[in-house]
Design a protein around this nucleic acid. Sequence first.
RNA 1: GCGCUCAUAGCUCAACGGAUAGAGCACUUGACUACGGAUCAAGAGGUUGCAGGUUCGAAUCCUGCUGAGCGCACCA
Length: 551
Amino acid sequence: MTPAELSQAVQAAVSAAVQAGELTVDVPEHVTVERPKNRDHGDYATNVALQLAKPAGRPPRAVAEILAGRLRGIGGVAKVDIAGPGFLNITLDAATQGELARTIVEAGEAYGRNEALKGLRINLEFVSANPTGPIHIGGVRWAAVGDSLARVLKATGAEVSTEYYLNDAGVQITKFAKSLKAAANGQPVPEDGYVGEYISDIAKAVTDGVPGVLDLPEDEQLQVFRTEGLKLMVAEIQRSMAEFGVHFDTWFSEQTLHDSGAVGKAIERLREQGHVFDRDGAIWLRTTDFGDDKDRVLIKADGETTYFAADAAYYLSKRDRGAEVSVYMLGADHHGYVNRLKAIAACAGDDMDRNIEVMIGQFVKMLRDGKEVRLSKRAGNIITIDDVIDWIGVDAARYMLVRQSTDSTITIDIDLVTSTSRENPVYYVQYAHARMSAVQRNAVEKGIVRSADFKPELLSSEWENDLLGQLGEFPRVLAKAGELREPHHVATYLEELARAYHRFYDNCQILPKGDEEVTDLTHARLWLADATRTTLANGLRLLGVSAPERM
RNA sequence: GCGCUCAUAGCUCAACGGAUAGAGCACUUGACUACGGAUCAAGAGGUUGCAGGUUCGAAUCCUGCUGAGCGCACCA
């Protein structure tokens, strides 16, 4: 029995008690059934009696008594106890619990998938770093988290489109082009220009690709460095992302918004909604109607459109392309944008609490010799995505970055991370998978084929029970991670699952030793181990981390 | 000045409003004639920044305070 099925059974028990006139309450939509930390509290516990006590006008324990009687009648429930203030502690019989292993093995790659966000069309934008240099460590965090989040959202039933917004239209690109041109001509870096080895590399690639470029007039030269340099830089970013296992469905160019007239059209649409006004020769959007602390300029007095106007056009583009929910993942230095972005949605007539979500993630702080290293792209002092991959590899890097909540800053000690990368918890999880794969190899070698005649009641030890309980949590963890947009819950879960597996492994012999006989228990444990391997692999896939058969 | 975010073991981090706040690292002590020791078992380590409030119950929600990071453009 899965936790979801048990939850429904408890809900049905409440419903039956209400119909029988034993309780007078509205039947709750969802009944919480959780895995208690303490084994003495049964396999599952529910607080439903505590929550219904007040509306029912009865003491919690009295409500619990009523429900306990009905729960005992459910098939597969071995025991129901009332504990503490009114918790219902439910113990399943071993066969009912053990059956979960079969459920998981038969579901295979589909185990864990659910419909928590069924049909929701989500546009997920992340990284979106300016294409004026390689992706640095901060962007790498959003790459790891965003890509995993996309996988999690898909697994919870959403239709997800991932997107990288290329700011290829602004003055930063002009500075980038000037920096390339200067490097190619052996001139000093222009004021506010970009420096770093990559600048001279790209400058050389441009001059190799366009022979004679240095003989062109200044302005034509600049144009070549702008278009060709941008092309090369974007290709470089795309290569890094692909190497990191991160996929974007759409690379969206800001320039196309201007070229296609989408920016002007967006302003007209907002004007029709009644939120655009003129003041001091400029055209404004009245974002203060929707919680922003000041109104924003769309077109400056000199006639130029602002970056904000492109943002508005971009939001409307996402909407026109079918997004019900636009999710933005931004760094903490952009938290000031939250209100204005949400106001764009509201000004366009959308629901700012539903159609747009802006996630703010904290920084990555780097330490070297115990001191914080200040990173700046302009100064050329950066740690790139390629550096991180070189140090510890894709698996360890992605896992490290995705396993903690984006609410907290990540502190990476450069000396420590390179010297002790083996301590990364990712190996603990991967090792569990590799260990299980080894068992399967050995089984094949001994000619043991997992029998279809599975006796789930044999999985009755505390280690097997713990492992089954953990396995049953996976769909719920995924649903939570998707709904909260927090993929780190998957990583935390996998560590707990791996721990339960390692403990099971150390305490329960799976395959016979020497000339011992193959028993029903051998087969039952192979089912359980296979279910674990399946779940570990499914979870690791969601994080973009490999599930190795050997390490 | 106004605003956003954060504060949990020595360190890095977890914890749908639930029962005795959990892991890893580091520290102490055990388990390898091995289904893979990248593991397991045991120990030690906490007034969840401070003070109130809400309730059957608060690390979690609310208020105030302290500390840290960041943001407050007709820049992009």
